[in-house]
Amino acid sequence: MRVTLAFIRAAFYNTYIYRLDFWIRFLSGIIMMYATYSLWNILYLQNPGAFGMNRVQMITYGVLGVIMYPIMDSAMFVQYYIAEQVRQGTLEMDLMKPLNFIFHMFSRHLGILCVLALMQSLPAFLIAALFLEFRLPATPELALAFVISLLLGYLIFFAISLMMGMLSIITLKIDSFDWAYDSLVRFSSGQFVPLWMFPPLLGAIVAFLPFKQVFFVPMSIYIGAVEGSLAMLLFSQAIWAIGLYGVVQIVWLRVQRRITVQGG
């Protein structure tokens, strides 16, 4: 517990060191929210029926994607962190620490999550609510379900990124693969465009991937565009999270074995 708190404190401290970074990210978030707002407004005017929901809902969906971006990004950082450690050859230092590696990674990035949620997402949320017709969830139940879904989505994304990071220990990481993966994730997560807008074939493929649990599910809950039971949705997210966590453990065992055999 103390370890986690220490990481949180370290993450906040880091923000003060790289203040310019902070402001840049913040301002670009605002511009992106504005761009999304405009985009859906213009498109809605063009073809109101295309969305299957009203204009404000659509805007809320789009802007929510931008607000959630820093939070989910922080889950992805673990992948880059591990890859970077591998590249610099300093992974052994982390492995030698008297901490369960997975717990260590989780705590470290939980710190980053707290910072980004508090200092990027929250202000963005307020600005969006004030200026960009961004609405709150229709009922308290939806709000609660959203928060739970968001956290589960984060855990899922974290688990996946952790696995990708671990894989980078035993393979060689190449940049173009990173970009491709990144764009694939964003595309299939429904962050930009809700998944029911996808044509049937693509939609079917994307429905299989876990990434929709990260953005699309919580975002749909938020705007109330959910068919069927909320509880089922949350439950399946939880299953995904637990299942992925199990896979992470297995992968980690394999990777550890590989490291000790090959010397890293």
Binding site: I174, S176, A180, S183, M197
Partner: peptide, 26 residues
């Protein structure tokens, strides 16, 4: 892997464009 990555990247980008166009024609 790089080639593969480039293909995926461009494919994803164009897919998104076509999805939007599919709905909005222009």
């Amino acid at each position: 892997v790089g080639i593969f990555g480039v293909i995926i990247l461009n494919f994803v980008n164009l897919s998104l464009i076509s999805i939007l166009i599919g709905r909005f024609q222009a």
